[in-house]
Every structure is written in structure tokens, then in C-alpha cells.
Design a protein around this nucleic acid. Structure first.
Lengths: 127, 127
DNA sequence: CAGATGTTTAGATTATGTCTAATATAATAT
DNA sequence: ATATTATATTAGACATAATCTAAACATCTG
């Protein structure tokens, strides 16, 4: 995988921003800085970076997927209300018994916390 | 929430099938049996059933959401390759420290296993 | 340099899901 | 029982997210 300007822009943006932008946001911001990429390229590069294991894709119910540079290991908190994805420190997760795994090949265990983010919790309280 | 024939068809289909169909599949099968529902109604009912806590929606990266009647508690295994979602027995998940939770309001902890399902693991081996 | 491979692009296309406005059905009040 | 109100359904238009296409461009390799 070559390190093209477009690809580099996507990767470095993700590394510098611990938020979890959608593909559209990444495209928009990266092109606002230096308008040299296209929508398709942004999607292509995100797919490639995910495939290469450098970036994580987080699917959110009913919303666009979000992306995240794989730095230190962490879990995710997803807000039920606004869909925001936030990092939550990592801790080891008990693996399933190999009996219950059967012939499946386990690659990873992911823990997702759901509820209201700080902002939505505040709005929720003041109603 | 009234129990209409259309809503009942969606719910009972989900309860009788432990697979995790997409909205399109549910619409198709339910209407093949008794063609009285529309696409919009299927989506409406799925949304309502999820909101009522009777059905769970599972977002899968790059693929259509899948649905699941909330029977006994369980975690999910998602196949990296075909996107199939399978149930995996339930066990308690360690909650994050309330310190790391901050002002967020935690509703649930979900454990997702990722890798290759039995079918894809077999194909993977015989290459 | 010449061919092979990898990358980008704009725009068309697909996939998934939501909205609208008219209609139908059922629950409640009179 | 009839009117009123609330809830649900429908077809098809619409919106959004993401992929595909085919041509152009860039970079590597011999």
C-alpha cells in the first residue's frame, strides 16, 4: 500500500483526532485543508486502511459508520441518542469457552457500552 | 402499541427464527406467507419493536442491520467475511469503573465476538 | 523507456432506510 | 350506536451512505 497524499491525509487526520468521524466528515475536513481528494478515494482509502488493520470501523445502528485510528487498545461507548462514539479505556474481556466457539475462528472480543453521552445526559436531566 | 397482523408477523417471525435476518429478508418472508404488509410498515414495526425493547438491532459494518428477538440474554458473533450474526451464550461483562464513565449514563454492556463463522472458516481452511 | 501494477477521479449506480399524505382501523367518549 | 380521537398501514417519492465504473494518472520494475 503506497503512501499517497490522499491516503496520508486520511490517516493523519484520524491519528490527530480522537473523535470518531464519519467518512463524509473525513472527506469534508481533509478537502477543506487541501482539496485534492474525492469522495470515492476517501472511501477507498478508509476501506484499505481498515483492511490493513490501521483503522477501525465502528458500525452504529441507523447511522453512518465511524472511523478510528487503532492506537492504544480501547473499548467504545456509543450514545443511544446522538450516535457519538467515544473511547473508553481498555480492559481484558473474558473469552468464550472454546466449546461454545465450535469451529468458528475468533479474531477479537469487543466491548461496547451503550447509553447517553455526557452532553445528551445533561440535556436528558434538564427536561 | 397495538398488536396488528403485520406487527405480529414480524415479531413471531423473529421469535421463531434464531437467525438474524435483515429488514429486507423479514419483509420478503413475511409477505411470501401472507402478503399484507408493506416495506414501510416492516421498517416502522421493526423501529417500534426495538424502541419497545422487544427486539434488538445489530449494526454490521458495511452491511444491512440485522434484527433479533430479545429472548434469553446472549452476546453476538459477527462474521468478518459474510456478515452473519450468531448468538453466543451470555455471561456477565465487567462494567467500567464509574470514574471512567464520568457523567455518562450507562444502559448496557454488549460483547461482540468477531472472526469467521463455521461456514467461512471451512472455506478459509480449504484454500 | 515500456509494461505492469496501483491509485485517483467524477459521476452513475446500488443499497438501505425514511418521509409524506392519503387511507384504514381500532379505542374512547358522548 | 355514533362521533371523535388516536394509532397503524400503504405506495411511492425521497434521502443518505456507500460502491462501482471506466478512464486517466502515478509509481514501480526490469
Amino acid at each position: 500500500m503506497r503512501c499517497t497524499p490522499q491516503r496520508y491525509a486520511v490517516m493523519s487526520f484520524l491519528m490527530e483526532h480522537t473523535g470518531h468521524p464519519t467518512a463524509a466528515e473525513i472527506f469534508e475536513v481533509v478537502n477543506r485543508v487541501d482539496p485534492r481528494s474525492s469522495r470515492a478515494t476517501t472511501y477507498n482509502n478508509l476501506r484499505d486502511l481498515v483492511k490493513a488493520g490501521l483503522v477501525r470501523e465502528v458500525a452504529v445502528e441507523g447511522r453512518a459508520a465511524r472511523f478510528d485510528a487503532k492506537g492504544t487498545r480501547h473499548h467504545h461507548f456509543i450514545c443511544d441518542r446522538c450516535g457519538e462514539v467515544e473511547d473508553m479505556g481498555w480492559y481484558d474481556v473474558p473469552r468464550p469457552a472454546s466449546r461454545s466457539l465450535g469451529k468458528r475462528i475468533l479474531r477479537e472480543c469487543e466491548l461496547i457500552f451503550r447509553g447517553l453521552c455526557t452532553k445528551c445526559a445533561r440535556q436528558h436531566a434538564s427536561r
